[in-house]
Simulated assay, not measured.
Amino acid sequence: MKITSKLLLLFSILLMSCSTSKNNTYLVGTYTENKSQGINIIDFNEASKVISLQKVVNEIENPSFVITNKAKTIVVAVEETASTIGGKVTSFSYDSKSSTFKKINSQFTLGDHPCTVAFSSNEKFVLVGNYSGGNLSVFPIDATGKLSEANQTITFQGKSSNAQRQEKPHVHCIVFHPTDNKIAVADLGRDAIDVIPFDEKAPLFLIENKIISTKVPAGSGPRHLIFNSKGNRLYATFELTNEVAIFDYSDDKLQLLKTLSLTKIPTQNGSAAEVRLSDDEQFLYASVRGNDNQLVVIQLNDGKNAKVIQSISTGTSPRNFIISNNQKSILVANQFSNSIIVFDRNKKTGLLTPTSSESELTINQPVYFYPF
């Protein structure tokens, strides 16, 4: 009887563990059309592939990009808007026991249309990139989630060859290096990727006089970035030419190793968007909007021998997407289809296959996922 009881207890624990691991929760950034819309909180069941809407944090305008602190107690979102003093960055507290959000405060970003946001490693600063403003602002944030006014703003200068899209700087992405005290910033307007060191103990977080700027091919339009876990590779989407670029990163320098076309027809006014890396770092995924509306799968090999192995249709305007915790699914946010859809992912081959229409959720203009 004792052995049986122990076995039953162990079986129950295993069942609970498996059940918990099947659920992925995400914050979904959106564009809004009324006050009832905002940040969506969704659950994704890895076994059934069903997506369910849990909550909407409303009365926030265009919360396109949203993040949390490590403890998941503070949520920060940009409000992708414009004014005489820029868009906004807004913070919320989250109580997991009651599953409730409470707005803390907002600050103006000092640049129009903020479209990227990140916590510093020690979570004492929030960094915001302003697309139309062409600048980068740093906001001190305290342990309760209260944002102070920006104490540092770096304004970039320059333009590039595409007169319609690159008439001035357009900051589009901020990522932290996994081991070094540096950030990488993609500037679509200047055709530049800037590596900026930081000092978390200094009054000003970013060390502006030590920026190292790497120019990419004219007219490329770098949009989104991701480092590998070692930090010696950087992957970027080139929005305007519908390409993915692979860079070597060493000694504070970026060296372009290879570019791969994401579409069959070359273009100078493309719409490549997000880039993601599988956990085993063998496969890279990129989304393309516009006329193509697809996800592209890249087998990385050693980088120099990377190749496209699949293109698969999505909904209209696939902006952001995310790979599930078990690496067996990809959720895609289709902005103009107002939908989130799911693809099955083969972990060994990296290839994708569509799931049933039951694995679809209607959300107004979803554009970003963040694990919650």
Rank of each mutant, 00 (worst) to 15 (best):
M1E: 14
G29A: 05
I226F: 02
S229F: 01
T4R: 12
N242W: 00
T179S: 10
K2G: 06
K35H: 08
A163M: 10
N228D: 15
C173L: 00
T4L: 15
L284K: 04
L147T: 10
V296I: 02
S313F: 08
V195G: 07
S229Y: 07
K35T: 08
C115F: 00
Y235E: 01
N301M: 13
S324P: 06
V171E: 07
K6A: 05
L110A: 13
S91C: 09
T84K: 09
K6T: 11
I312K: 03
Q37M: 09
A47C: 06
A163P: 13
P178E: 02
A118T: 10
L240E: 07
N105C: 08
T241G: 01
T241S: 12
C18K: 13
N269S: 14
E274F: 07
S313T: 08
N346V: 11
G231L: 05
R289W: 04
L8R: 14
S91D: 05
F227V: 01
C173S: 09
S337V: 03
L352F: 03
P63C: 09
F101P: 12
A143H: 08
L351K: 15
I51R: 00
N209K: 13
N320W: 05
G231F: 06
K103P: 12
N326K: 15
S52W: 03
D95N: 15
F119C: 04
T20C: 14
S19Q: 06
Q294L: 09
T25A: 00
G221Y: 02
G129H: 02
F44C: 10
D248N: 13
V50C: 00
R190Q: 05
D187I: 10
A47G: 02
L284Q: 06
I174N: 05
E281N: 03
K6W: 00
P203H: 03
M16K: 12
V56R: 09
V56N: 11
I60P: 06
L240H: 10
V78R: 00
D194L: 13
F372K: 12
I183E: 03
L53H: 04
K328E: 13
Q282N: 14
K72D: 10
V128W: 07
Q166V: 09
A272G: 04
T84M: 12
V171C: 10
D43P: 01
F283R: 05
F65Y: 15
P354S: 12
E243K: 13
I74K: 15
Q365M: 14
I322C: 04
T81D: 01
E79S: 11
I226A: 05
H113K: 14
E61K: 15
K72P: 00
G189R: 01
K182F: 01
G290I: 01
K347A: 02
P371C: 04
C18V: 09
F65L: 12
K146P: 04
H177W: 02
F139Y: 04
N209M: 01
T316D: 15
L260K: 07
K97L: 14
E61Y: 09
L331A: 06
P266M: 08
E200R: 07
L53I: 06
D95G: 02
D191E: 05
L127P: 09
N291C: 07
K210T: 08
T179F: 03
D302H: 02
S96A: 15
T109L: 03
A163C: 01
K88D: 10
V89F: 12
F156C: 09
A47H: 15
S12Y: 11
